[in-house]
Amino acid sequence: MESTEDLVSISVTVNGRRYADQVEPRWLLAYWLRDRLGLTGTHVGCDTSQCGVCTVILNGQAVKSCTILAVQADNGTVLTVEGLAQDGTLHPVQAAFSEAHGLQCGFCTPGAEMLAVALLEENPHPTEAEIREALDGLLCRCTGYQHIVQAVALAAERKGRGA
């Protein structure tokens, strides 16, 4: 275990709330969120940044939190799945995932949703091919992706209507 001198102070805004903490430089953002903040919605599915189930939005960009160090998020803003719903109302992406049956076991779902949120920020009216392309950073073993693709399209349609 490293001595306290090796700890680094960080300050990160997560889901609108500011957290100050002392972390080891090697701690991964995913585990900091999960173990220190109790935000266990961000899951870890691999250790080589392929599966994308750990995806969060850091400073406006979708990143794989299992390959980002917590110290890299210092002074940054992180949005996790827990921060999507506002005042008990599901984010349109969350509502669409449920409506289109875009999840089965639910393990990749937080990552899939964060990817979808980032996609729709960048491209509010994606084609089906663009959605499939954007999901390249995600592995889902249950759904065969089809209902995920439909969920993202549904969310885009709703957002387009200003819902």
Partner: peptide
């Protein structure tokens, strides 16, 4: 089941 899973509360 989705109610908890889509908000990361599984």
């Amino acid at each position: 089941e989705d109610a908890r899973l889509v908000v990361g509360r599984g």
